[in-house]
């Protein structure tokens, strides 16, 4: 099963201030550990939200509204993510606990989220019915 470790943004990351050399080294070492253990799938850091845009749909069925960054609520923003593939939720927690404090200064926050597995997606009866209907339509249009 795969998990995403989401590193939340802080004032520093939002200000585009690069992390300290110490933190960079600790992160590199951590990523190396993940790779050596065969669990690292992907990991990326993100530009601050000043470079970003937000697309929202204030009215259902209406046109999207585009807002330029930066966005203020830094705790709601993310600064990067790492995807790991492990055999249990406990193992994911254990790895997440070992990630270095992403920013220090009392602001560091990591969120651990599980990524849906194919089986989970196909076990949902509603999704199953939808997919079956879709396949039937494809089948019919093929024959027509």
């Amino acid at each position: 099963m795969q998990f995403m470790m989401i590193v939340k943004a802080t004032k520093d990351s939002e200000a585009g201030k690069p992390p300290s050399l110490e933190l960079i080294n600790a992160m590199m070492k951590y990523n190396e550990e993940l790779a050596k253990a065969g669990v690292l799938v992907a990991g990326q850091g993100l530009h601050p939200s000043s470079d970003s845009i937000r697309i929202s749909y204030p009215e259902p069925g209406g046109k999207p509204k585009v807002t330029d960054g930066p966005f203020t609520e830094s705790k709601e923003l993310i600064a990067g993510f790492t995807i790991i593939e492990v055999s249990s939720r406990e193992e994911a927690i254990e790895w997440a606990m070992r990630m270095p404090d992403p920013h220090g200064f009392g602001e560091g926050q990591i969120e651990l989220r599980q990524i849906f597995e194919p089986e989970e997606l196909t076990q949902d009866p509603e999704a199953l019915a939808k997919e079956a209907a879709l396949r039937e339509r494809v089948e019919r249009s093929r024959k027509a």
């Binding site: 253990a37 055999s87 249990s88 406990e90 927690i93 254990e94």
Partner: peptide
């Protein structure tokens, strides 16, 4: 025990 299992895996 579950945590220890996970640590064992790692």
């Amino acid at each position: 025990h579950r945590t220890i299992d996970a640590i064992w895996r790692i």
